[in-house]
Amino acid sequence: MAEPPIIELRGITKTFGEGAAAFQALKGVDLTVERGDFLAVMGPSGSGKSTTMNILGCLDQPSGGVFRFLGHEVQSLSKDQRSLLRRRYLGFVFQGFNLLSRTTAAENVELPLVYRGMGRAERHAAALKALDRVGLLPWANHTPAELSGGQQQRVAIARALVTDPEVLLADEPTGNLDSERSVEIMKFMAELNDQGITVLMVTHEPDMADYAKTVVHFKDGLVERIEQSERLALKQGASA
Protein backbone atom coordinates (compact mmCIF):
# COMPACT_ATOMS: atom_id res chain seq x y z
CA MET A 1 0.00 0.00 0.00
CA ALA A 2 1.38 3.37 -0.99
CA GLU A 3 2.21 5.82 1.79
CA PRO A 4 -0.29 8.71 2.00
CA PRO A 5 1.13 12.04 0.77
CA ILE A 6 2.72 14.22 3.42
CA ILE A 7 0.90 17.31 2.16
CA GLU A 8 -2.35 17.60 0.26
CA LEU A 9 -3.95 20.87 -0.88
CA ARG A 10 -7.45 20.60 -2.32
CA GLY A 11 -9.15 23.67 -3.80
CA ILE A 12 -7.28 26.09 -1.57
CA THR A 13 -8.43 29.69 -1.90
CA LYS A 14 -7.17 32.76 -0.10
CA THR A 15 -8.78 36.15 -0.17
CA PHE A 16 -7.22 39.25 1.37
CA GLY A 17 -9.38 42.19 2.35
CA GLU A 18 -13.14 42.44 2.09
CA GLY A 19 -15.84 43.80 -0.20
CA ALA A 20 -14.74 45.84 -3.18
CA ALA A 21 -11.10 45.88 -1.99
CA ALA A 22 -11.01 42.09 -1.73
CA PHE A 23 -8.20 40.43 -3.59
CA GLN A 24 -8.19 36.74 -4.31
CA ALA A 25 -4.57 35.58 -4.12
CA LEU A 26 -5.31 31.88 -4.49
CA LYS A 27 -8.14 30.68 -6.66
CA GLY A 28 -8.28 26.97 -5.93
CA VAL A 29 -4.84 25.40 -5.63
CA ASP A 30 -4.50 21.63 -5.80
CA LEU A 31 -1.13 20.19 -4.87
CA THR A 32 0.14 16.91 -3.50
CA VAL A 33 3.58 16.51 -2.00
CA GLU A 34 4.96 13.02 -1.41
CA ARG A 35 7.32 12.28 1.44
CA GLY A 36 10.93 12.79 0.39
CA ASP A 37 10.15 15.15 -2.46
CA PHE A 38 12.10 18.34 -3.15
CA LEU A 39 9.65 20.84 -4.48
CA ALA A 40 10.60 24.16 -6.04
CA VAL A 41 7.75 26.64 -6.29
CA MET A 42 8.22 29.21 -9.04
CA GLY A 43 6.20 31.97 -10.56
CA PRO A 44 6.11 35.71 -11.10
CA SER A 45 5.44 37.96 -8.12
CA GLY A 46 1.75 38.09 -7.30
CA SER A 47 1.22 34.58 -8.61
CA GLY A 48 0.40 33.30 -5.13
CA LYS A 49 3.55 31.32 -4.42
CA SER A 50 4.39 33.10 -1.18
CA THR A 51 0.80 32.88 0.02
CA THR A 52 0.88 29.17 -0.68
CA MET A 53 4.12 28.81 1.23
CA ASN A 54 2.65 30.67 4.23
CA ILE A 55 -0.28 28.29 4.23
CA LEU A 56 1.98 25.27 3.83
CA GLY A 57 4.06 26.59 6.73
CA CYS A 58 0.91 26.73 8.89
CA LEU A 59 1.59 30.44 9.36
CA ASP A 60 -1.56 31.47 7.52
CA GLN A 61 -5.00 29.94 7.17
CA PRO A 62 -6.68 29.38 3.78
CA SER A 63 -10.02 31.06 3.15
CA GLY A 64 -11.40 27.86 1.67
CA GLY A 65 -10.44 24.34 0.67
CA VAL A 66 -8.75 21.49 2.48
CA PHE A 67 -5.14 21.38 3.67
CA ARG A 68 -4.05 17.99 4.99
CA PHE A 69 -0.68 17.83 6.64
CA LEU A 70 0.41 14.49 8.08
CA GLY A 71 -3.23 13.56 8.46
CA HIS A 72 -4.21 16.85 10.22
CA GLU A 73 -6.91 18.99 8.64
CA VAL A 74 -4.92 22.19 9.18
CA GLN A 75 -7.64 24.59 8.01
CA SER A 76 -9.70 23.71 11.09
CA LEU A 77 -6.88 23.94 13.65
CA SER A 78 -6.49 26.77 16.15
CA LYS A 79 -3.55 29.15 16.21
CA ASP A 80 -1.88 27.28 19.05
CA GLN A 81 -2.44 23.91 17.41
CA ARG A 82 -0.75 25.23 14.27
CA SER A 83 2.13 26.52 16.42
CA LEU A 84 2.55 23.01 17.78
CA LEU A 85 2.58 21.56 14.24
CA ARG A 86 5.33 24.01 13.29
CA ARG A 87 7.23 23.18 16.43
CA ARG A 88 7.09 19.43 15.84
CA TYR A 89 7.30 18.94 12.10
CA LEU A 90 8.50 22.08 10.31
CA GLY A 91 11.80 23.85 9.83
CA PHE A 92 11.95 27.31 8.27
CA VAL A 93 14.66 28.98 6.24
CA PHE A 94 14.02 32.56 5.21
CA GLN A 95 15.42 34.83 2.56
CA GLY A 96 16.58 37.34 5.17
CA PHE A 97 18.05 34.59 7.38
CA ASN A 98 16.08 35.92 10.36
CA LEU A 99 18.61 35.14 13.01
CA LEU A 100 18.47 36.87 16.39
CA SER A 101 21.16 39.51 16.38
CA ARG A 102 23.53 39.80 19.32
CA THR A 103 22.89 36.12 19.96
CA THR A 104 25.51 33.52 19.15
CA ALA A 105 25.06 31.01 16.35
CA ALA A 106 24.70 28.20 18.88
CA GLU A 107 22.01 30.08 20.81
CA ASN A 108 20.13 30.80 17.59
CA VAL A 109 20.16 27.12 16.74
CA GLU A 110 19.02 26.25 20.27
CA LEU A 111 15.96 28.47 20.01
CA PRO A 112 13.45 25.89 18.66
CA LEU A 113 14.57 23.43 21.34
CA VAL A 114 13.79 25.98 24.04
CA TYR A 115 10.14 25.69 23.08
CA ARG A 116 10.39 21.92 23.18
CA GLY A 117 11.32 22.17 26.85
CA MET A 118 14.73 20.60 26.39
CA GLY A 119 17.33 21.05 29.15
CA ARG A 120 20.12 23.53 28.71
CA ALA A 121 23.05 21.11 28.32
CA GLU A 122 21.13 18.81 26.02
CA ARG A 123 20.03 21.79 23.94
CA HIS A 124 23.55 23.07 23.56
CA ALA A 125 24.88 19.65 22.54
CA ALA A 126 22.14 19.32 19.89
CA ALA A 127 22.87 22.82 18.59
CA LEU A 128 26.58 22.06 18.23
CA LYS A 129 25.73 18.85 16.39
CA ALA A 130 23.48 20.75 13.97
CA LEU A 131 26.15 23.42 13.44
CA ASP A 132 28.65 20.66 12.75
CA ARG A 133 26.29 19.30 10.10
CA VAL A 134 26.36 22.63 8.26
CA GLY A 135 30.12 22.93 8.81
CA LEU A 136 29.99 25.86 11.21
CA LEU A 137 31.10 24.26 14.46
CA PRO A 138 34.11 26.63 14.78
CA TRP A 139 31.71 29.60 14.54
CA ALA A 140 29.33 28.44 17.26
CA ASN A 141 30.12 31.37 19.52
CA HIS A 142 30.00 34.04 16.85
CA THR A 143 27.06 36.42 16.48
CA PRO A 144 25.35 36.85 13.08
CA ALA A 145 27.11 40.17 12.57
CA GLU A 146 30.44 38.34 12.62
CA LEU A 147 29.38 35.84 9.95
CA SER A 148 29.09 36.12 6.17
CA GLY A 149 25.70 35.89 4.44
CA GLY A 150 26.30 32.30 3.42
CA GLN A 151 27.35 31.38 6.92
CA GLN A 152 24.28 33.09 8.36
CA GLN A 153 22.03 31.11 6.05
CA ARG A 154 23.77 27.92 7.10
CA VAL A 155 23.14 28.85 10.75
CA ALA A 156 19.48 29.32 9.79
CA ILE A 157 19.47 25.88 8.15
CA ALA A 158 21.05 24.39 11.26
CA ARG A 159 18.28 26.01 13.28
CA ALA A 160 15.70 24.43 11.00
CA LEU A 161 17.40 21.04 11.18
CA VAL A 162 18.01 20.85 14.90
CA THR A 163 14.51 19.57 15.57
CA ASP A 164 14.74 16.83 12.89
CA PRO A 165 11.76 18.23 11.00
CA GLU A 166 9.65 16.27 8.52
CA VAL A 167 9.51 19.22 6.17
CA LEU A 168 11.95 22.03 5.49
CA LEU A 169 10.32 25.19 4.14
CA ALA A 170 12.64 27.61 2.42
CA ASP A 171 11.45 30.99 1.18
CA GLU A 172 13.97 32.32 -1.38
CA PRO A 173 16.85 30.84 0.62
CA THR A 174 19.44 32.13 -1.85
CA GLY A 175 17.80 35.48 -2.53
CA ASN A 176 20.37 37.43 -0.51
CA LEU A 177 23.44 35.44 -1.55
CA ASP A 178 25.91 35.62 -4.42
CA SER A 179 25.92 32.79 -6.95
CA GLU A 180 28.81 30.89 -5.40
CA ARG A 181 27.19 30.85 -1.93
CA SER A 182 23.82 30.08 -3.53
CA VAL A 183 25.17 26.94 -5.15
CA GLU A 184 26.72 25.93 -1.82
CA ILE A 185 23.41 26.30 -0.03
CA MET A 186 21.45 24.51 -2.74
CA LYS A 187 23.85 21.58 -2.75
CA PHE A 188 23.40 21.36 0.96
CA MET A 189 19.62 21.41 0.68
CA ALA A 190 19.75 18.66 -1.94
CA GLU A 191 21.93 16.64 0.43
CA LEU A 192 19.37 17.04 3.21
CA ASN A 193 16.68 15.92 0.80
CA ASP A 194 18.74 12.84 -0.02
CA GLN A 195 18.80 12.13 3.71
CA GLY A 196 15.02 11.93 3.68
CA ILE A 197 13.79 15.42 4.53
CA THR A 198 10.96 16.73 2.39
CA VAL A 199 11.97 20.20 1.10
CA LEU A 200 9.61 22.90 -0.12
CA MET A 201 11.32 25.92 -1.60
CA VAL A 202 10.14 29.14 -3.18
CA THR A 203 12.52 30.62 -5.70
CA HIS A 204 12.46 32.71 -8.82
CA GLU A 205 15.85 31.56 -10.08
CA PRO A 206 15.59 28.64 -12.54
CA ASP A 207 19.20 27.67 -11.69
CA MET A 208 18.17 27.04 -8.10
CA ALA A 209 15.03 25.21 -9.08
CA ASP A 210 17.25 22.75 -10.96
CA TYR A 211 18.30 21.32 -7.62
CA ALA A 212 14.71 20.28 -6.87
CA LYS A 213 13.00 17.09 -7.98
CA THR A 214 9.70 18.68 -8.81
CA VAL A 215 9.06 22.22 -10.04
CA VAL A 216 5.63 23.78 -9.52
CA HIS A 217 4.80 26.84 -11.61
CA PHE A 218 2.27 29.30 -10.25
CA LYS A 219 0.35 31.84 -12.26
CA ASP A 220 -2.51 34.11 -11.21
CA GLY A 221 -3.32 32.23 -8.05
CA LEU A 222 -3.36 28.81 -9.64
CA VAL A 223 -0.92 25.99 -10.30
CA GLU A 224 -0.06 26.40 -13.95
CA ARG A 225 2.01 23.27 -14.44
CA ILE A 226 4.09 20.72 -12.55
CA GLU A 227 7.19 19.24 -14.06
CA GLN A 228 10.06 17.02 -13.09
CA SER A 229 13.33 18.89 -12.87
CA GLU A 230 16.38 18.13 -14.91
CA ARG A 231 18.19 16.81 -11.87
CA LEU A 232 15.53 14.20 -11.26
CA ALA A 233 15.41 13.35 -14.92
CA LEU A 234 19.19 12.96 -14.87
CA LYS A 235 19.04 10.84 -11.75
CA GLN A 236 16.33 8.65 -13.13
CA GLY A 237 18.20 8.44 -16.39
CA ALA A 238 21.28 7.30 -14.50
CA SER A 239 19.43 4.65 -12.57
CA ALA A 240 17.46 3.41 -15.53
Binding site: L59, D80, L84
Partner: peptide
Protein backbone atom coordinates in the same frame (compact mmCIF):
# COMPACT_ATOMS: atom_id res chain seq x y z
CA UNK B 1 8.00 36.67 14.42
CA UNK B 2 10.90 34.21 14.43
CA UNK B 3 9.81 32.77 17.77
CA UNK B 4 6.23 32.34 16.57
CA UNK B 5 7.36 30.83 13.25
CA UNK B 6 9.46 28.17 14.92
CA UNK B 7 6.51 27.16 17.04
CA UNK B 8 6.30 29.37 20.14
CA UNK B 9 2.75 29.55 21.50
CA UNK B 10 1.16 32.98 21.98
Amino acid sequence: GIRLAIGALA
